[in-house]
Structures are given as C-alpha cells and as structure tokens.
Amino acid sequence: MSLIAKLKRALTLAALCMATCPAFAQSIDIDKPLTIAKQGSFFVGGRDITSDTLSTLPQADPKGTVTVEQMYVQYQVPVHPSSTSVVFIHGCCLTGAEWETTPDGRMGWAEYFVRKGFPTYVVDQAARGRSAANAASVGAVKTGKLPPDALPSGFSVGREFAWALFRFGPRYPEAYPGLQFPLEAQDELWKQMVPDWAYSMSTPNPTVPSLGLLSGRLAKTVLISHSQSGIYPFQAVAGGADGIAAIVAVEPTACPAANVDARPYTRVPILLLYGDFIVESPPWAAHYAACKAFAASVNAAGGHVDVVETTQLGMHGNSHMLMQDRNNLKIADVVTDWIKHKVH
C-alpha cells in the first residue's frame, strides 16, 4: 500500500473512530483542559561580540560584550510523553507564533502536538522574535564609524506581496475559490509579521547549528520546518548533527540540489508536505519541482522521502500557511501519523 493510500486510510479510520469510539475521541478531545508535565524556555547557541558601538544613547555605555544570534526555544512536555520530540521552525518574516494559536483563534499545531503526546519545542530563528540580533553595525553607521552600506540587509514583507507568496490568491486582495485560510482574520496574521534579517547573516544561517545543538540535547527529534526555514534541517543533517530522527518540511522554498551527494539525507525519513494552488503560482511550482527532483535523487540512493500534497488526500483549498488553515488539525494528523509510521 502506498504512503498516500495509508494516510488516506488513517484519516478515514480516525474520522470514523472519533464519531463511534469514545475512548479515542477522549484522547484527542481538543475541548478538554490541556494537562502538561512541564513547560518553559531556554536559549541555544549564539556567540559573544565585543563592540564600542552598542549604543548611541548617552545613558548607556557603548562599549561592552553581548551575546547575539542565539536561538530562543519555548517548550511544553505532556504528562505521558512520546520518546520522540518535535521542533517547529517558522518561515520568512514570521516568528514561532505561526505555530501557536491561529489568526482566527483556533488551536495551532504547537498545542495540538502536545495533546497528541509529543514533547513540543517552538523556536524563534536567530535575529527574529525573541532571538537577539546583532545591532552593533547600526550604532557604528549612526556614529560615522562605518559607511551606510555596512548596515545589515533586512526586509519587511507587505501584505500585498505576502498575499500571492502565501497563495491566498493570484493577486491582492483576490482570493482563490475554496481557500482554507481564514481571510476574515487576516489582520491578525499581518500583526505576526516582523522584519527579517536572515540575509544579513552567515550561510548557513546561525539557526542551523543551533538546531543541531537542540537536536543533540533532545536525542530523538523531528525537525518540522516551514517555507524559508525548509532548508535548515537538511543543512543540519548534512553538517552531522546528532539526534535528528526525521525531517518534515512544510512547503520548503528550497531543498538541497538534486545533484548533491544524497548520502547524508538517506539517514533519516523525510516528508515534503504541500498544499493547494501550486500550479497557479509559478514560483511555487518551481520550488516544488526542484524539491521533487531532490526527493527522487535521495530515494534512488536508498533514502526514504515522501512527497505529499493535501489534494492527494482529498483536502482542497489549502494555502502556504497549512498550520493556520481551517483544516489545520486534519493536516496535523497526517504529519503525526507519518511520524508514528516512520520514526522508531
């Protein structure tokens, strides 16, 4: 039986059992109070810099040592945890909040995976959200110690550009028919978006070695990436990181090249997960084709890469923001079922 057929069967059985099996329904009842064993936060990675341009304000000493590019991690552990942890890595212009409550107030994947028994870790990429950026060059330019072109390269994405990027529709504000994203709450999504400094940092992004450190600390984890961060778990695996049990790349903007040495990627099962309207978006059609070529290369080398579109599972109208779409929990079930089948 193919993976698609297995996932379809699992979703059908789950739907039937939720209606007829009280014990099963109770185990994933999203209306019950959430019970956890522990929660908290910590930082991973980073580096120290010493600078004399840390401040341009008279009340703060511009000279000193600070830590930058560390990765913030927030976690919740259920009472009866699985031996497999999951790490959620957000995409471009966003923070770890994308995995939390949806823009229209529904449960996000971060909580749902905890309810499904997984210790869950949500990160903010280096220089994003609660992970510190390096602002020393800003002070150096403002005080004339460096030229203006020494400023870091950052960008913000407007909702007009994000509309097509997130595949809500072909152009702002036109929506695709049957779109699953809750457009009535779009203002709450726009509030989540922040300046992105990813292109002002080294390659690989400092988030990558931090993911390696976190995976080694957790010992058995599934890295679940999205969009811009899609390449990061692959880079961590290729770099020899320990503790990575599987990769789930939700609509990655990039995968390793198809002609790359595939051997590092044969060591872990990989799921590439996509939504709808890809053929309507030339950029996403190109990303998808490149990742499918990578998957074929790894599978030919003896690896295990599954490429799944929600439309193959009978779900239509999904945007790039799969974790926030109206059927986000059904899609989460696809991911958790895949993890249970693939990670041992």
Rank of each mutant, 00 (worst) to 15 (best):
W197H: 02
G178H: 09
S215R: 10
R217W: 00
A219D: 12
F166H: 06
L213A: 05
L214C: 09
Q186P: 00
E174R: 03
K191Q: 08
Q180I: 05
P204E: 13
H226Q: 12
R167D: 13
N205D: 14
D187L: 01
V194N: 08
W197V: 01
S215V: 10
H226M: 06
S225Y: 14
Y199Q: 13
T221I: 09
K220V: 08
W190C: 04
A164P: 03
R159M: 10
W190P: 01
W197S: 01
V222N: 06
Y199F: 14
F166S: 02
T207S: 15
P177R: 13
S215E: 10
G169V: 01
I224N: 01
L214A: 08
K191P: 02
Q228H: 15
L211R: 13
E174N: 04
L183H: 02
D187H: 00
S227H: 12
A219Y: 07
Q235L: 15
N205M: 08
Q192P: 01
L189H: 02
P170A: 11
E184Y: 11
K220M: 08
L213Y: 03
I224V: 15
G230T: 04
L218R: 07
S202V: 04
G216F: 07
P233N: 12
Y176Q: 00
A162Q: 08
G169T: 02
A162K: 00
L189P: 00
L189F: 05
Q228E: 15
S225H: 14
L214F: 11
H226G: 06
G230E: 02
P195Q: 11
N205H: 15
R167G: 09
I224L: 03
S225P: 14
A162G: 13
L218F: 11
K220D: 15
P206E: 07
L218M: 12
P195V: 02
R171C: 05
A219P: 05
Y176V: 00
Y172G: 02
F234T: 11
H226A: 06
F168G: 00
M193L: 15
S200Q: 03
P233G: 09
F168C: 01
Q235W: 12
M201L: 15
M201I: 06
F234D: 01
Q235H: 12
T221F: 11
P170T: 08
Q228M: 15
E188M: 10
Q186I: 14
G178T: 10
T203H: 14
Q235M: 14
L214T: 11
A219G: 13
P204L: 06
F166K: 03
T221G: 07
G212F: 04
Q228P: 09
G169S: 09
Q192W: 03
F168Q: 01
L179V: 13
P206V: 06
G178P: 11
T203K: 15
L223E: 11
G169E: 12
K191R: 13
G212D: 01
L211I: 10
L179Y: 06
Y232S: 09
G212Q: 06
S202N: 04
P177V: 09
Y176A: 01
F166E: 04
G169F: 04
F234Q: 06
L183F: 04
L183D: 04
D196F: 07
P182N: 05
L179M: 10
L183V: 02
Y176K: 00
S200T: 07
K220E: 14
P182Q: 07
G212Y: 05
I224W: 03
S215Q: 11
Q228V: 13
